[in-house]
Write a protein that binds this DNA or RNA. Sequence first.
DNA 1: CCAGTCAGTGCAAAGCTTTGCATACCCTGC
DNA 2: GCAGGGTATGCAAAGCTTTGCACTGACTGG
Lengths: 334, 334
Amino acid sequence: MTRIRNIKQLADLAGVSTGTVSRALADSHLISAGTRARIKALADEHGYRPNIMARNLRIQRTGAIGVLIPLGHQTGQHISDPFFITMLGLLADSLTERGYDLLLSRVIPTDGGWLEKVVDSGRVDGLIVIGQSDQADALDKVAARYRPMVVWGGYQAGQVHCSVGSDNRLGGDIAATHLIEGGCRRIAFFGDPRALEISQRLQGCRDAMARVGLTDGPTVLPAQLVAEAAHPDIARFLGDSSQRPQGIVAASDVIAMSALRALAEYGVAVPDDIRVIGFDGLAIGEQTVPRLSTIRQDLTRGAEHLVDMLLRRIGGDDTESVVMMPELVVRASS
Amino acid sequence: MTRIRNIKQLADLAGVSTGTVSRALADSHLISAGTRARIKALADEHGYRPNIMARNLRIQRTGAIGVLIPLGHQTGQHISDPFFITMLGLLADSLTERGYDLLLSRVIPTDGGWLEKVVDSGRVDGLIVIGQSDQADALDKVAARYRPMVVWGGYQAGQVHCSVGSDNRLGGDIAATHLIEGGCRRIAFFGDPRALEISQRLQGCRDAMARVGLTDGPTVLPAQLVAEAAHPDIARFLGDSSQRPQGIVAASDVIAMSALRALAEYGVAVPDDIRVIGFDGLAIGEQTVPRLSTIRQDLTRGAEHLVDMLLRRIGGDDTESVVMMPELVVRASS
DNA sequence: CCAGTCAGTGCAAAGCTTTGCATACCCTGC
DNA sequence: GCAGGGTATGCAAAGCTTTGCACTGACTGG
């Protein structure tokens, strides 16, 4: 009843060779049904499990997909951010359903080779990167030679890596247009445009304003994505009543919530004095006071696309980037 | 400039043996500084990264910690559940800070060996299991021989596996006592007591009621943990106005939110007609209408304990289970 | 009765590192 | 000039599977 730890021991016990054991456990029809059953029973009885590392080394695949969260432009950010977490949960569900494990890494791309390190480590069969941060070039460089990688984020012409994401420019445009239609002329944009997606949202905002003659565009406050870090900046900005905008386009729901909180503290009425619109469409936005208007991205569909396309790429197919339409959700904050 | 894929090629290129390369890359002082620098430069130039699977196989460790979410008593449940996700984010932060990767698995323990499969696979250096579900026995069995495992969940006397969690009985007691002090005599408990933690919360609820002579205890509605599945049951239960309780102890904040929603739909005033209290203290409870009273568990500290203790166990130490004190948070729903 | 087939099994290489031990060389001190 | 002690490197085993190929024996058909 002693524990069996490798295939050799089991082979000796069964009086066959390791090859036979390996094949028997894999249900190969090369092995007679009798031997097969006997070996399996023996393996079961002695609690033998093949060593996955050795197996992976041999067959050159791991059954794991890496999910990477590059925190390029803001070191303070944590994975516990609601957006990442939501996406992560969706990916986990979708991947486990397909029999893959999920290897989570939070990386701070300070050195050049952060992505190569994961790719070449051979630890994963494919890679999902959540957000380009300010690392679009690094992603392109790797994508040129490493196929099984898809990225959640923005799309720009000429991009080498395969991305899934929303039409961020359009989203920003819709958000700003919505505020303008509500009568706003002085608009502020809260978000750090070093991240590709956010710069696109800002661009959309500018476009919408330019169309009605507001060629200066919005005032930009490069707020951090993470709530705790953003709040002081936002509070300071809004504290100066002389520069208060009439409308705020926030680059994410989390930033918008920070803004709502700060405005409440200053006694500014939303949406009467200042209108606020977020971006993402997280569930949490339903629960704010007032309930947050937002530009919804369909994360569920996004996650499914990411996994689908990644598996196709692992299988050798090629895939085009996907740009999904964002959707205006008007609640009570605008 | 051709890509180098294994240590042998690099060794040939450098005109040394593989052993020397291996040591050089590991910065071993056995290798002269000159050779070391030369090899490193060469490795860098040709983009060589050691194959992690081979390395893991050789040194018998993986640098990854498995996080397991057993969904024993309810097949519908998804990882996207807010509680799991919150915990997962905290663990991810804590683990990556300490240089470990996080391998996420959602398992449905139908067959006996679900846990053994992960443990013996050699894919991870240690295991964090989130929630005992109804699998306490399976956990004990494995814990008897596999040291590097810690479990988030309840503690009961005689338990073999090492757990971190709240005093659930006490939490249930506090919750029920709070409702009783608010004048409730007919109390309902929403939650499926097949899970250890929940049965303990129910027990606490019973204890509190017994102390004031309510020996029948609460009416138990074995609601699912996941919101979508629980809602119909809860709505049906509350729809029958003849059996409506005066107070509801929900086994989780998510269940409580479902109850709040159902009550709002029936036009029942909270807390005036029915008082509701949840369990967990998730951030999301701040945003409900009315804001949810709850029993808070300190998940941040819990996650840190889990990781700390796991690493200590990996290092060979032994660790005692930790039971943290839950805390009553009175907001507006009770 | 023999050549040929086929089912079932064994052998050993390959996958890539790490590391204990052996080796080679260069000094130093006597 | 030689024993002894470092220092720098090479050799090869070990870690555990999977799998192409070779082999054995039994059986079929002529």
